[in-house]
């Protein structure tokens, strides 16, 4: 019974850490946009990285996907889907951006 509640405490702490981390990253994101102005590319790069960090925090602490051994390959599936996504999004932006440039349309 003691071990039971000990485990419970530990797993609850995991969720609270995930929540606190995500909260901090969210505040940093909106804070950066608020104080440094969103129009600067450097600020946007920072915001993008903060978003990526938050994705990872939530994957690890909420969805429990990490490098521990599991009987099914959850992480592999996430990584493969990410690869598919990068090909789809990167390819679309590349092809259409190139097209826009060749047709002398304004910035893409």
């Amino acid at each position: 019974m003691d071990r039971h509640s000990e485990l419970h405490r530990r797993e609850r702490r995991r969720y609270v850490i995930g929540y606190g981390g995500s909260l901090l990253l969210t505040l940093a994101m909106f804070g950066a946009a608020h104080w440094f102005g969103i129009e600067t590319r450097g600020v946007y790069l920072t915001i993008g990285l903060l978003g990526l960090a938050q994705l990872i925090v939530q994957l690890v602490y909420f969805l429990h996907i990490d490098r521990r051994r599991s009987s099914r390959e959850d992480l592999d599936l996430v990584l493969f889907s990410t690869l598919v996504l990068l090909i789809i999004i990167g390819g679309t932006v590349w092809i259409l951006g190139n097209l826009a440039m060749r047709m002398h349309m304004p910035v893409m």
């Binding site: 969103i38 590319r41 946007y44 915001i47 993008g48 978003g51 994705l55 939530q58 909420f62 969805l63």
Partner: peptide, 24 residues
């Protein structure tokens, strides 16, 4: 629960790309 956590992940993508990206 899995579905709900997943929706929050998508939302982070939306604020980063749609809202902040759109404003930039």
């Amino acid at each position: 629960a899995l579905f709900w956590h997943f929706l929050d992940l998508i939302w982070i993508g939306i604020i980063t790309i749609v809202y902040f990206g759109g404003l930039t």
